[in-house]
Amino acid sequence: MTKLGPAHLGRRFAALLIDWALCLVIASFYADPRVIAWPPVVLLILFNALFIGPFGQTPGMALARLRCVSAADGGAIGVLMGLVRGVLLALLVPAVIMDDNRRGLHDRAAGSIVVSLPPRGR
């Protein structure tokens, strides 16, 4: 298996935008996000816990060819650490404070790293 490198910020941002748009659409079925702001935020946190925790990808990450894995062993981070990562991501500030490996405080707290996947077909 080839070593996967840290994901570029543009792809990470694109994945986040896709996930955010999906959260807005889903939340609009039961609340107006223009009036009540918290439902899409809760959905984004749940996306991190339920998609990244066991599977390593949100729908946006899958489209952007990214995966969030354990920085220690490359495996899944689990639902609890996905939840921690999601809560800190929702706060935004921890996500923009990054180290040399493009790991935000939310990634460091969850023990995760977002990596770029190779192009399909390889």
Score class of each variant (00 low, 15 high):
V79C: 05
M1N: 10
V96F: 15
A72W: 07
A64G: 06
N48C: 01
V79D: 03
L4Q: 13
F29P: 04
G56H: 14
L88Y: 02
P119F: 01
D99Q: 05
V84D: 03
I97Y: 03
A71Q: 09
I52H: 03
D73T: 05
A27Y: 05
P59L: 09
L44N: 08
I36F: 05
G10K: 15
L80V: 09
R65D: 04
A110G: 10
S116M: 13
L66V: 00
H106P: 02
V96W: 13
A49H: 03
P6D: 06
F51A: 10
G10I: 09
V42H: 07
P59K: 03
T2S: 12
Q57C: 06
I97G: 07
L63N: 04
M81Q: 11
V42F: 10
A109I: 01
Y30E: 01
A76D: 13
S116I: 13
V42Y: 07
L4H: 15
L117N: 08
F47I: 00
G53Q: 07
I45F: 00
P40F: 13
T58C: 01
Q57A: 06
V93W: 14
A14E: 03
S70W: 09
V41H: 11
F13N: 05
L88I: 05
C68V: 04
R11P: 07
L22Y: 08
G121A: 03
A110T: 04
L16F: 14
I26N: 01
T58P: 00
W20F: 13
P6L: 13
V25M: 00
S28M: 01
A27E: 09
C68T: 10
L50N: 04
D73Q: 09
V96I: 13
R34E: 14
A27Q: 07
L80T: 06
T2D: 15
I113R: 12
P54W: 01
P119G: 06
L105W: 15
D99S: 07
G86R: 12
A76Q: 15
G5H: 11
L4N: 11
P33A: 03
N48V: 01
R120F: 11
A15H: 12
C68I: 02
G82N: 02
L9F: 10
A95G: 11
R102S: 10
H106N: 08
W38Y: 10
Y30V: 11
V87I: 13
K3I: 12
V84A: 12
L88N: 03
T2H: 12
V69H: 08
A7T: 11
L80E: 09
V41A: 11
R108M: 15
V96P: 05
G78P: 04
A37K: 15
Q57V: 07
M61T: 00
F55D: 08
H8I: 12
A15M: 08
L91A: 15
M98R: 15
L50D: 06
G121W: 11
L92H: 10
A31L: 08
V42T: 07
V41C: 03
S28Q: 02
P40Y: 13
V115D: 00
L63C: 05
A72L: 04
M61L: 00
R67P: 01
W38C: 01
A95Q: 06
